[in-house]
């Protein structure tokens, strides 16, 4: 474990050094990708330590990096909007709302405004953060998500046209699922005798979801899994480099 961590730190150090030597700028990140990629693939099949530990540690490292990089993101957000306000670009007034919101939430969260005890969780009862979460964040999230109900209706109205035979099949299937997922489906065909129970709308709806839909889903998932394997392999081997900025090495 110690040697592996040391090796990894050396590699990371090399990446840092390589940043200043242009020809090596891409070589070391590629080497690091190859090393960690192969290590984690091997770790999947070796239960003995330090391999499971490495998997765990790497996940943690990513989180640590992601948390620190938030400073980068937050900084960028502030910079872009402050510049917009300063230069009075088009719709700059909206940027005031963004910057004000950002600063207020950050200050209230960081200083635990309204908290009786410094060690209380940031969402403890009575804190200003908790109030903001309940009174602002929750309704806003729910509002944006509920837009889906409206957009589903407008998209269905526009897209569900029986233009071809395939589109008609899709349309009929959509009707069955829509009705089958409500009590109306039960009422409509509950009178069907036992031998015809397959045509009872909730049963038909379940059949569509669990047979043709599942077959399609599985096929797509197999394709996606192969795509992920191939892309990961290309990245580990350095064939795919566009995520590093380009093809030149």
């Amino acid at each position: 474990m110690f040697f592996l961590t040391l090796l990894l730190l050396l590699l990371l150090g090399s990446v840092g050094l390589a940043f200043f030597i242009r020809p090596l700028r891409k070589f070391f990140p590629l080497l690091l990708t190859l090393f960690t990629g192969l290590l984690l693939v091997v770790a999947l099949f070796i239960p003995a330590q330090p391999f499971p530990k490495l998997e765990e540690e790497f996940s943690m490292w990513f989180d640590v990096i992601a948390v620190f990089s938030f400073i980068l993101g937050g900084g960028n957000l502030l910079r872009v909007h402050l510049m917009k306000i300063q230069q009075k670009k088009r719709d700059w007034q909206y940027s005031i709302v963004t910057v004000t919101g950002f600063v207020i939430v950050l200050v209230i969260g960081l200083f635990k405004v309204g908290s009786k005890n410094w060690s209380d969780p940031y969402l403890a009862q009575g804190t200003a953060f908790k109030w903001m979460y309940d009174a602002v964040f929750v309704p806003l999230q729910a509002t944006i998500f509920s837009l889906l109900a409206f957009f589903v209706a407008s998209a269905a109205f526009r897209a569900f046209r029986a233009k071809t035979r395939e589109a008609t099949i899709l349309l009929v299937a959509a009707f069955i699922i829509l009705i089958g997922r409500t009590p109306v489906g039960v009422w409509l065909t509950s009178w069907l005798p036992n031998p015809l129970q397959f045509f009872h709308i909730p049963n038909l709806s379940t059949w569509i979801l669990s047979v043709p839909n599942m077959a399609g889903q599985r096929a797509i998932m197999i394709g996606i899994a192969l795509g992920i394997i191939s892309t990961s392999l290309k990245m580990i081997l350095g064939i795919e480099r566009s995520w590093l900025g380009g093809d030149e090495s």
Partner: peptide, 21 residues
């Protein structure tokens, strides 16, 4: 759809090794 997303880079770059993958 699905895997086409991963195939796109190979298609766009025209790189023979990516197409081979």
């Amino acid at each position: 759809i699905g895997e086409e997303l991963f195939a796109a880079s190979a298609y766009l770059s025209g790189d023979k090794r990516s197409i081979a993958s």
